[in-house]
Write a protein that binds this DNA or RNA. Structure first.
Lengths: 150, 150
DNA sequence: TATTGTTATACTCTATAACTATA
DNA sequence: TATAGTTATAGAGTATAACAATA
């Protein structure tokens, strides 16, 4: 195996590890929200609703269609977790957490934070090492290295 | 914000980065296989079929039900990408890539390797730094640190 | 004319349960 | 009796297209 082939193989292994870890994190999140009786899509929406937001914005954050946000909003409303409140532009409806919704959101975020895999498995020093690498991979900051192939 | 709160917040940020990167990698894979006209589930199956394997094994690797593997096998067979071949145990059917299936698999794995985000955005040295951190997070090796809370 | 949200509908992915053949 | 694969059916998650109200 050439050096180049070895680089490819190792990079492939690392991507698989990364994806596995992300799946684990997602499974942890799923278990947390299942424990409070919430299906994943509703939970994701609730977590994003830090403040009242137009349904349009939620669609963008969830990377889904506006019609699906209508669907989610209906379900959240049925559960008494959000309310539709009129926006200034009268076409717009804001989704706002009710008191029950806020309470549930707090429970979820606290439970998720407690389970955090990075918190449990890495030391502070390791997290400081990991951070800039993930930022580079996520495309934040100045992007590629001089020698990169981007 | 206390030290502990800061740790929680930073760990939360890192998990979000990690998940975003994994989604990006998955999107890259999806784009690659869409370019060869293959839906994701079929592509995942094909990539796993490095050699003829019992449908049972594929179900385990895909973490799905046996009945769904039947479904996938039907579609792959329709496209002429796999064949069901009888196993030694006559209850078992092996899924084996056809020549067309093998060719397609090679195209996919090559294209995926080329796009690899870790290959493009990190240096060799950075990859060597990243590897053990990901291994720890994935739960490989000896697990937690002495000071950890696992 | 363009945009927000809604409705009705349909599609993809995947599971469950009952079944057949083999062990 | 237990296991491999199949069939029929059902459910979750999500999109598309046409629409109403507002800008």
């Amino acid at each position: 195996m050439s050096d180049q082939e070895a680089r490819f193989a190792e990079a492939g292994r690392l991507v698989r590890l990364l994806v596995d870890i992300a799946e684990q994190a997602k499974a942890d999140f799923a278990a947390t929200v299942a424990a409070v009786g919430l299906p994943m899509p509703l939970a994701r929406a609730i977590v994003l609703l830090t403040h009242p937001a137009p349904m349009r914005d939620l669609a963008e954050q969830l990377a889904c269609d506006r019609s699906y946000v209508t669907n989610l909003a209906d379900q959240l409303e049925e559960r008494g977790l959000v309310a539709r409140v009129p926006g200034e532009d009268r076409r717009v409806k804001l989704l706002a957490l009710t008191d029950a919704g806020t309470a549930l959101r707090n429970r979820i975020t606290a439970a998720v934070a407690e389970r955090n895999i990075i918190l449990h498995r890495l030391t502070d020093a390791e997290r400081r090492t990991l951070a800039p690498l993930l930022e580079r991979l996520a495309g934040e900051g100045r992007g590629c290295h001089p020698g990169g192939t981007c």
